[in-house]
Simulated assay, not measured.
Amino acid sequence: MHRKGQGRSGGLGMDQEREIMDAYSEAVMHATQVAGPAVVQVRTQRAPAAFFGLVPPRQGLGSGVVVEAARGRIVTNSHVVAESETVEIGLQDGRRATARVLASDPGQDLAVLETHLGGLRQVELSTRPPRVGQLVVAIGNPLGLESTVTAGVISATGRSLQSPLGEMTDLIQTDASINPGNSGGPLVDSAGRLVGLNTAMISGAQGIGFAIPAATVARFLERVDGGQVERTGRSDRLYLGLSGVPQMLEDGSLGFLVLQVFPGTPAHAAGLEPLDVILSVNAEPVSTPEEIQAAVQRAGRRQVPVEVLRRGERLRVWVTPAALRG
């Protein structure tokens, strides 16, 4: 004989499981109701890639979140609005308006937009450090599907990724589904507070996404207010245009696992693919973002060989690093 609501093996009974699921659903719904109205769709147009405008402007799609309603300020990823000629935002209530890029820091993949629209709702930035196992909700516009919500947990903190400008550090890893178009959207806690800003995913894999912590976003906004971040600028730093993490191989050696290859970059032109493992750049063994950046800088703007392990086969591709255009 067993007590009502308790499994025969001492586990949770059906009533207890139902209560837990109801509490989980309530937490996700509450977070969505609080933060959802502050999430915006970000559409961009970039200059044509051909002469005389014979090729239509390239369009981009991402997400953003209102952080200062009174000043019409929205935070998003720098790569979402990079090189954009025009930026348009769309709200959940159906309103659309143009926005301008107020400031951008490609190194941190953060940007601030400014719009004239009134009646905005803003999200509160969490001041608590993210905790592994914490419930989080990702809100955004994946693949153009507006106001999409996915839930998961924080899988790890303090992660590092190789971005087009070098290394991004102290990132949050989450299993909440993040897809193209989610970039720049918020990762919120059960109270609807901003825990992080979605920035990257592993192409071809499920349950591995990354977000910039709210503390980093807050410091960035302080720098913008202090005039320490410019909207545009040029950098002599060279890049390949991919993100990734160190990867241990079967023989115990280390390589660099490619998570994402950014369109229109040297890595994309060379045919590098997500889930490739980079073994060396210009004959220099690499396994960390710092090593890749250093090898690229030493190589300069000339074609260099990149040794890659792809589905068990060793390949050599040739890449010409490029200077970042702010």
Rank of each mutant, 00 (worst) to 15 (best):
G5N: 15
G5A: 15
Q6K: 10
Q6E: 14
G11T: 11
G11S: 14
G13Y: 06
M21G: 00
D22A: 14
D22W: 03
D22G: 04
Y24F: 15
Y24S: 12
Y24I: 15
E26D: 07
V28W: 01
T32A: 12
Q33A: 14
Q33G: 03
V39S: 06
Q41M: 13
R43M: 11
T44R: 04
A47Q: 15
S63D: 13
V65K: 07
V65Q: 04
V65Y: 09
E68L: 11
R73M: 13
I74E: 03
V75D: 02
T76G: 07
T76I: 07
S78N: 03
S84M: 07
E88K: 08
G90F: 06
D93N: 13
A97E: 10
T98M: 12
S104L: 09
D105M: 07
D105H: 03
P106I: 10
Q108I: 08
Q108T: 10
L113W: 02
E114N: 03
G118A: 14
R121S: 14
P129M: 01
P129K: 01
P130H: 07
I139K: 04
G140Q: 02
N141L: 04
N141I: 01
N141D: 08
L143V: 01
A151Y: 00
G152L: 13
A156N: 09
R159I: 07
R159T: 05
S160M: 08
L161F: 02
S163L: 06
P164V: 12
G166S: 12
G166W: 01
L171C: 01
L171H: 07
A176S: 11
I178C: 09
N179M: 02
P180W: 12
P180D: 13
G181N: 09
G184I: 06
G185R: 05
P186R: 10
L187S: 00
D189A: 09
S190V: 15
G192K: 05
G196F: 09
T199H: 04
A200D: 05
M201P: 07
I202Y: 05
I202L: 07
S203G: 08
S203E: 06
A205S: 12
A205I: 07
I208N: 01
I212C: 08
T216D: 11
E222F: 02
G226K: 13
G226R: 14
V229S: 00
G233I: 13
G233P: 11
R237W: 00
L240N: 03
G244F: 02
G244D: 00
V245N: 03
M248N: 05
S253D: 13
L254I: 08
V258G: 01
L259S: 11
L259C: 10
V261D: 01
V261P: 03
P263S: 13
G264L: 08
G264R: 11
T265G: 06
P266C: 12
P266W: 07
A267K: 02
H268N: 13
H268S: 15
A270D: 02
A270E: 01
P274I: 01
L275Q: 12
D276N: 03
I278S: 05
N282S: 14
N282M: 08
A283N: 15
V286N: 02
S287G: 09
Q293K: 13
A295L: 05
R298A: 14
R298P: 02
P305N: 03
V306P: 00
V308W: 02
E313I: 08
R314K: 13
L315G: 00
V317P: 04
W318L: 15
T320E: 15
P321W: 06
A322M: 10
L324M: 10
L324N: 06
L324A: 11
L324S: 10
G326R: 15
G326A: 15
